[in-house]
Amino acid sequence: MLTSSRRTRGEMIFDIGNTIFMIFICFVTIYPIWYVLVNAFNEGTDAMRGGIYWWPRMFSLESFKAVFQSEGIMQAMWITVAKTIIGTFIHVLFTAMVAYALSRRDLIGGKLYIWIGTITLFFSGGLIPTFLLMKDLQLLDNFMVYIIPAMFSFFDLIIFMTFFREIPDGLEEAARIDGANDWSIFLRVVLPVSMPVVATIGLFHGVYQWNDYFTGMIYMNDTSLQPIQTYLYRVVAESSSNQMLAAVPGGITRSVTSQSIKLATMVVTTMPIVFVYPFLQKYFVKGMMIGSIKG
């Protein structure tokens, strides 16, 4: 009884300590986001006084109105949405096609292709050779620079391939008996039963496309083709934010400051991913478990 009592008491202490620790981690993770939200929804001039930590002192939507009225910001937002949707769709489809082929054990040279692909996980050509390659391919100041280089990822291929190898062979055999070819099997049999891993890779690459600022910074001189993250990066990196204020119709107003527009832009660029993630979370967890533990 004494041992059981001590074990129970120890478990209670562990649970309490673990709960306190997890609450602390959640607070450290969530509060910076909450701080940005609170200050973004506060009146700009008043926010410059500081002291806003938990709730807006003077609630205002003027900064968000300025963001959505700015042609430069909205153009960058449309570029980001377009490259995220198109890039994610093409990446998932193309990577899944290659992974399905490599998952076939009767593929000639399959092990060699996998060995070559594994090398790319550890070595790359570097930034300058990649830039010269993009230049020779005429992808500088071209929207396709967001799509073509990101069409394939060997890391994502491994997850896809592991999942495909867990699909029962009987499904493909039944489809072949019905007269289906490889394309029909892939599109009508394999992909429909692979939604968990498709959602997982789609979420991975969608977040990458949405948050990617580096590609636009290196390969884009045309500001009309820059994504919102690159736009925001350049404004924050500059010593003055007059560029952003100048893009606001009517210029500087009493309730809008460069800092308030920065915060509002951060909220606008972050919230779409935050809202989409809960809907894909169940597929994300299932896809990661199948692609890692079973492999």
Rank of each mutant, 00 (worst) to 15 (best):
G10D: 10
F143A: 08
Q259R: 07
A47M: 14
M217K: 09
T29W: 14
R188Q: 13
L102K: 06
V268A: 06
N181F: 00
W183Y: 11
I116T: 12
A101D: 08
M97E: 03
A237I: 01
L132Y: 13
D169Q: 14
I90V: 14
V38S: 04
I116E: 09
Q226K: 15
S292D: 04
G295K: 06
T130L: 06
G125D: 10
I228K: 09
V267T: 12
Q209I: 01
G117T: 02
E173I: 01
I86R: 08
L102T: 10
I290Y: 12
L132S: 13
L139N: 03
I185M: 09
A40K: 07
F163A: 11
I228C: 06
P56I: 02
E172Y: 11
M289C: 00
G202V: 01
N18Q: 07
F14V: 07
L61A: 14
I261A: 12
E166A: 14
E71R: 15
F186Y: 13
I252N: 00
D141M: 06
Y146C: 02
H91Y: 11
E62D: 13
I290D: 10
T84Y: 07
F64C: 01
R234I: 11
I201M: 05
T8N: 14
S260P: 05
V276Q: 01
P249W: 05
C26E: 04
T88K: 13
W210T: 10
K135R: 15
F27I: 10
D212N: 15
N181R: 05
